[in-house]
Design a protein around this nucleic acid. Structure first.
Lengths: 208, 208
DNA sequence: GTCTATACCCAGATAGAC
DNA sequence: GTCTATCTGGGTATAGAC
């Protein structure tokens, strides 16, 4: 039996919020903050614009909630694909790269939004950097040092490695439309990304 | 002595067009097509909006002329930095990567515009791909095969190599604001880019 | 809580005087 | 060729009925 009254309303509201967040992530990630209108989000989500603003307060508020929602989803995927309860010490650089590429493939907006926003120094860039990337960069640096100590990778500046390990797939995934047009290949397929991960892993192996 | 009459007018017009193109490249490359207004371009260029539209017909027309102008400038830089009259056979992969990074550093818009536009399949992506990137990709593939034949690089899929060789610097340069915020480093400095080029070159060396 | 109607602003583009 | 003035459309956000 469905509980009547407030419970159903709350459920309805949550469902609407959810579909707005999904639509917002999709549109913001493709057209940027300025290039995305509240009309297009509400159309895509099937929620009236007025209610959407009522839920999220403003376009800025919606963007902010979308960001937190997105990064929470990504963190869940990371746990599922990579950590599975393991600690950082138990993860090899190959595992990391392969898993990272896979997570990026599953969450296009995770790749696209920092890419579109990171071009400028705005409140949105600041929010992405402060809430998420700073922690990410620090954690990655510690991970790289551990891998280097174990002799798993050749001696590479962590930031360079981060760019090689994470950035390459980001470009293939984010710029898939233009890669398709220019090179005629689908750079988002699971196979393509897996093979690229293998290339990167191979190049990073220390010359024994 | 300045020639009077039509000549001066043509010069004036050319100077105005030039300053509009510069402003347009700067703004389009940071805020995207939708995110850039004709008002902001005309303000930055110091040319009235009405005359700007008179010169370029429309926002679309201006974008198109800006693209050709930009890629022509980039081609000049490539000639200056890399080719210097040499043929492709005389250029090593190290030279290429270092030069490519330097050209990207000199022309931020060359990196940013394909990045912001390449996310979607629009008339602008098509124009970038058809007029420029397709040729670029084909040329690069031939170059890579030549390098591989000479044993200069380990056996890597050309598209992967292209992404490693070209993409890495693009991300550091394009996303400099967010890298600065997240990692506290200026990833656009000549020194930083040179060092990153050296890392890439080193990793690509075949394990002898 | 959810609708209709609308206020208000800025976008791109045009008309017409000079 | 370059201005002033203006049109039309779409943007975010709000007011108020229900």
């Amino acid at each position: 039996m469905k509980t009547p009254g407030t419970s159903t309303r709350a459920e309805q509201r949550e469902a609407s919020r959810q579909s707005v967040l999904e639509a917002a992530a999709e549109l913001f990630s493709h057209f940027g903050f300025e290039g995305t209108s509240m009309n297009s989000i509400s159309d895509k989500a099937g929620v009236s614009k007025q209610n959407m603003i009522y839920y999220f307060g403003s376009k800025e508020g919606l963007w902010e909630e979308m960001l937190d929602w997105l990064f929470a989803n990504v963190a869940d995927s990371f746990d599922e694909v990579l950590y599975k309860g393991r600690s950082v010490d138990q993860i090899s650089i190959s595992d990391f790269i392969r898993a990272y590429f896979e997570v990026c493939r599953r969450h296009p907006a995770y790749v696209l939004i920092p890419m579109l926003e990171g071009v400028n120094d705005t409140w949105r860039s600041k929010m992405i950097a402060e809430r998420y990337l700073s922690r990410h960069v620090g954690r990655f640096n510690r991970f790289v040092r551990a891998c280097a100590d174990r002799g798993e990778i050749s001696d590479v500046e962590p930031l360079h490695l981060q760019n090689l390990a994470a950035g390459g797939a980001q470009l293939f995934l984010a710029l898939a439309p233009i890669w398709k047009l220019a090179a005629g290949k689908d750079t988002t397929s699971e196979k393509f990304i897996r093979e690229y991960a293998e290339t990167v892993v191979r190049l990073l192996k220390p010359a024994s």
